[in-house]
């Protein structure tokens, strides 16, 4: 049944893409408005997941866990912005990379001290732990459907906020010309803190939703952070629309690459070559895409700044 398989893989790609978008949206805003490169963005994702797991364990309610993770991570994010990150805005990108790299080291060790070095459990709600029959022969995990739904809702909400509200206008103004926006009376200090908090909250949503699918463990933020960076660089730094397009591209390309490429190689070449070249190329695919995009459009697909 290649058609149901295709549909299932498309849903998988969509789900990965939407979660990457939640991470990338916050990252691209922070990057775009504050011209700040924040490697510790993945750390907020990790903190969100750990908070969710802890609250889920204590309360037994998944919804409460997500809510607590969102609020808690947003507060931590804003506190971080006010204390450590604010002095870095005027520094070079190099210093920002290092300071936030230091934050990763510190946060990872603190989490290890508080929660231990082993992964902790965060289970999906029992009601969603089974499959749903979408079409004859196409059973899809209910939980992943919910993840897709929440991802779509968040994307829509973000679109409405950025495009149709005053805050959104300020954000866009800040991303395209910070000095001018500031001169026009936008309170950038407050705006930065709020934007950072919102970005952190989106991280927490992604962390709490992906926790049951992946693993709540130290270092979980780093790998996904690199993917999120790839997404915003492809999409164009500062552009939320670019982040959405980039995230979906990366999500689908990665899913397709992992399944289709080895099969393709098996059909075309000897099994030995297939088992080596297939996985190699599949893991490289998104980086090839990024290098390719940067080669021809050095500012990404949707540059925020003219």
């Amino acid at each position: 049944m290649p058609l149901t398989l295709l549909a299932e893989q498309a849903l998988n790609g969509l789900q990965l893409g939407l979660m990457l978008f939640l991470l990338a949206a916050g990252l691209t805003l922070v990057f775009g408005i504050m011209d700040m490169i924040n490697l510790a963005h993945g750390t907020l994702y990790m903190i969100g997941a750990y908070l969710a797991a802890t609250v889920a364990e204590a309360s037994g309610s998944f919804v409460a866990a997500i809510a607590a993770a969102v609020v808690g991570t947003a507060v931590i994010g804003m506190a971080l912005e006010l204390t450590v990150l604010r002095p870095l805005y005027r520094r070079s990108h190099l210093h920002q990379v290092l300071a936030t790299f230091a934050l990763i080291l510190i946060a990872n060790e603190l989490v290890r001290i508080i929660w231990g070095a082993q992964p902790i459990a965060l289970n999906m709600p029992a009601a969603l732990s089974g499959p749903v029959e979408l079409a004859p022969g196409l059973r899809y995990p209910a939980y992943r459907l919910v993840v897709i739904g929440v991802g779509l809702a968040a994307a829509l909400l973000l679109y409405v906020v950025v495009v149709h509200t005053r805050v959104g206008m300020w954000l866009r103004a800040g991303a395209s010309d910070r000095e001018m926006a500031s001169a026009m009376g936008v309170n950038t200090a407050w705006l930065f803190t709020a934007a950072f908090g919102a970005g952190a909250a989106l991280c927490a949503v992604a962390g709490a939703l992906l926790g049951p699918l992946l693993a709540v463990q130290v270092g979980m933020g780093e790998n996904i952070l690199i993917l999120a960076f790839v997404v915003i660089v492809i999409g164009g730094i500062g552009s939320v629309r670019g982040a959405l397009v980039g995230a979906l591209l990366v999500g689908i390309l990665d899913t397709v690459g992992r399944t289709a490429l080895p099969a393709l190689f098996r059909a075309l070449a000897s099994p030995e070559v297939a088992s080596e070249a297939g996985p190699a190329l599949a893991s490289m695919l998104i980086y090839v895409l990024m290098a390719g995009v940067l080669c021809f459009r050095p500012r990404g697909l949707f540059p925020a700044r003219g």
Partner: peptide, 30 residues
Amino acid sequence: QLDYAAEIATLRAARPDAVFFFLPGGMGTN
């Protein structure tokens, strides 16, 4: 690797009688 959605879909399409997997640590959990 932590997300096996793509592999599981392909696996199911192959309609095996049984699955033998070796995925130590967190990989197996997921």
